[in-house]
């Protein structure tokens, strides 16, 4: 068949072209696939190492920053010199350093808020987390739940608003949807009213024009009044 011949022709042309390109860049005839893969792996490894190193450096920088703000004093500064093993760790209330907060011995750098900010996103996030936890084994699940519980309580104590109650989130979503529906209905009604008003205006205009035309016609039908010639005295 012609089609198969055409295909073969194309293949031959392609092979020829590839060959010319290879000769142009002076490539070795045989490509060692294993060597290529090995090189690729090595590159990936090097990249991972570099990433790790960068992470370490940033951590060290953060620690040094915390150390700069650190307010812990050793016990020989305070009066308690006899009790050497019991170091005196003095903590203050929450300190604000620029945009950052220093509390609980940690410098909390002000940055972008992580995680979902809207209700829909929060619910999705919560459901995904639930699924992830359910897939784990009993021991791990308990550990995660325990740490999660304390983390949640700590955030609550700090005054952060938590969006972790599924029922409440669903409720607020329902409320939002209701509001949306209400507003969309109102908008639809407004649009319909506008349309109706426009149609009515057009109709009125048409009627007025029609009336005017008819009145003109009727005027034309009647003979025009002849003016009486003015008498000259």
């Amino acid at each position: 068949m012609e089609t198969t011949e055409g295909k073969n022709d194309l293949r031959a042309k392609l092979a020829e072209k590839i060959q010319t390109f290879r000769s142009q860049r002076k490539a070795t005839e045989k490509v060692d696939r294993a060597l290529l893969l090995q090189r690729r792996k090595e590159k990936a490894k090097a990249r991972a190492e570099a990433k790790k190193l960068a992470k370490k450096e940033s951590k060290a920088k953060q620690e040094s920053k915390v150390a700069a703000y650190d307010t812990g004093n050793s016990s020989d500064n305070i009066a308690d010199e006899e009790n050497d093993n019991h170091k005196s760790t003095i903590t203050y209330g929450t300190l604000i350093v620029g945009d950052d907060k220093f509390s609980n011995g940690k410098l909390k750098v002000a940055g972008k808020k992580r995680g979902p900010t809207d209700v829909f996103g929060a619910l999705k996030h919560l459901e995904a987390k639930k699924r992830r936890i359910e897939s784990m084994d009993e021991e791990k699940r308990r550990k995660i739940e325990e740490s999660d519980k304390w983390h949640r309580v700590l955030l609550q104590a700090e005054g952060k608003k938590l969006k972790d109650n599924e029922q409440l989130l669903k409720k607020s979503i329902r409320r939002k949807e209701k509001e949306k529906k209400k507003s969309s209905d109102a908008w639809k009604e407004r649009k319909d009213n506008e349309k109706k008003a426009m149609l009515m205006r057009q109709q009125r205009r048409e009627e007025n024009l029609k009336k005017r035309r008819e009145s003109k016609k009727s005027k034309k039908g009647k003979a025009p009044k002849k003016k009486k010639p003015s008498k000259k005295k």
Binding site: T91, T94, L95, I96, N104, L154, A157, E158
Partner: peptide, 18 residues
């Protein structure tokens, strides 16, 4: 203990160093 510290810290307004 961390919760205890946090609670006491958040009972008073934060102090701006600057």
């Amino acid at each position: 203990e961390a919760l205890l510290t946090t609670t006491f810290q958040n009972m008073f307004p934060p102090i701006s160093v600057q």
